[in-house]
């Protein structure tokens, strides 16, 4: 949505128009919930983040400057709410600073199983899907937010940078680290062969 499309709605929001508030929620709630669910990894926390996002947006709509779109602005509020909540729950996992990984030794690929050519049904198994979600959950939160906005929600590098208040190069480098970690994890998972449902408890 372009900034121009937003401006009429923004004017109505700033005037306190209830129907405009409802429209903002209708337009964006599903996307914000998806982001929150991927960030938090569970439905209860995702719902809290969703509610917090709109409560906070309504409270601060007067400060909204139309440099970003409403959508990017909401993503920004939601990501901050999610990161704050994660920091409270697992402070050791969520650093405010750029993670200290100057040496990319940690990122150098180690698993070279070529899972590209596996049959499509291997990727569609519930077990594989669950592993993919667990892999997101286990990314450091600062990498997770970049990965979700860029590769799951499909925002551009520029939009992601605006939503997270990061430089373009920080977005690119965090995205690369996130992707390499996920690739490594999926390569390890798929190298072990599919889990046959009957053998699971």
């Amino acid at each position: 949505m372009s900034h121009q499309d937003d401006s009429d709605l923004v004017a109505r929001l700033k005037a306190g128009d209830q129907a405009a508030y409802a429209q903002l929620v209708n337009d964006h709630a599903a996307r914000i919930y998806r982001l929150a669910l991927r960030m938090m990894g569970n439905e209860t926390d995702a719902e809290d983040v969703l509610q917090e996002t709109f409560l906070s947006a309504f409270k601060s709509i007067d400060n909204f400057e139309e440099r970003a779109s409403l959508s990017t602005w909401l993503y920004r509020i939601a990501t901050n709410a999610a990161l704050m909540r994660l920091r409270r729950k697992e402070p050791e996992l969520v650093s405010v600073e750029e993670p200290v990984e100057r040496d990319d030794g940690d990122l150098l690929p180690r698993q070279f199983f070529d899972f590209c050519c596996l049959p499509e049904e291997d990727f569609l198994r519930a077990e594989a899907r669950a592993e993919m979600l667990r892999a997101i959950d286990e990314l450091p939160a600062t990498l997770r937010s970049v990965f979700i906005l860029r590769d799951v929600e499909g925002l551009s590098t520029e939009e992601t940078a605006a939503a997270l208040d990061l430089s373009i190069s920080a977005v690119k480098s965090r995205l690369m680290r996130a992707r390499l970690k996920l690739r490594e994890r999926l390569a390890t998972y798929f190298s072990q062969g599919p889990v046959i449902p009957e053998t699971r408890q």
């Binding site: 599903a30 509610q51 199983f113 590209c116 993919m132 992707r179």
Partner: peptide
């Protein structure tokens, strides 16, 4: 190749819906 495949797999992952009960409580 597997990096590109990883990105594709995540992009194709089905999106969770916003349940109506959650939407109702939000309103």
């Amino acid at each position: 190749n597997t990096l590109a495949k990883t990105i594709t797999l995540y992009r194709q992952m089905p999106s969770p819906e916003l349940p109506n009960a959650v939407r109702e409580r939000l309103f």
